[in-house]
Amino acid sequence: MDYHPKKLLTIVCEAVLEVPLTRDIQRLGAQGYTVVDARGGGHYGVKRAAWSFDRNIRVEVICEPDIADAIAGHIASSYAQDYGLVLYIGDVGVMREGHF
């Protein structure tokens, strides 16, 4: 089977960012995104998501490299200083190129 190369941009951040972040993602050219609740532990301690203000989300975007770079740059300049977040990018292969 042939796969088409894309980038997978993953952002783990405070749930309060969901609306502005997903709006920015679409404005910067991504065709879509996936948002799921996220829990875990790390540099900032344990996130159990027991309260709404303590929740984290994971946002995943599959897109072209230039769009991933634009989104990552925007997040770094607009949100990273004031919110807890982790951002990483990796290579993926997708089955349906036109969906991304």
Rank of each mutant, 00 (worst) to 15 (best):
G29I: 05
P5L: 06
D2I: 15
T10D: 01
G41V: 13
D66K: 14
A70I: 09
G84F: 00
V94F: 04
E97Y: 12
I67P: 04
R55W: 06
Y83D: 10
M1G: 11
A68P: 01
G93Y: 05
V94R: 01
D82E: 02
R27E: 13
E60I: 09
D37K: 12
Y33A: 11
Y3L: 14
L85F: 06
A50P: 03
Y44R: 12
V86W: 10
E14R: 05
D24L: 13
G98E: 08
E64P: 01
G73D: 09
A38D: 01
L87K: 08
L85W: 04
A76N: 08
V19N: 11
G42F: 07
A70V: 08
I11V: 02
A76T: 11
Q26T: 15
E97R: 15
I25H: 11
Y3K: 13
G29T: 02
G90L: 09
V92K: 08
A72Y: 07
G41S: 15
A15Q: 05
H99T: 14
A76R: 12
V36D: 04
Y88A: 11
V46C: 06
T10L: 06
R39K: 12
V94Q: 00
L17N: 06
I71P: 01
I57P: 00
G90S: 14
Y83Q: 10
L9E: 03
V12T: 09
Y79H: 01
G84Q: 00
Q81P: 06
L9R: 09
D91N: 04
W51V: 12
A80T: 07
G41D: 07
D37G: 14
M95D: 10
R23L: 07
V36F: 09
V19H: 11
A70K: 10
R48E: 12
A49D: 00
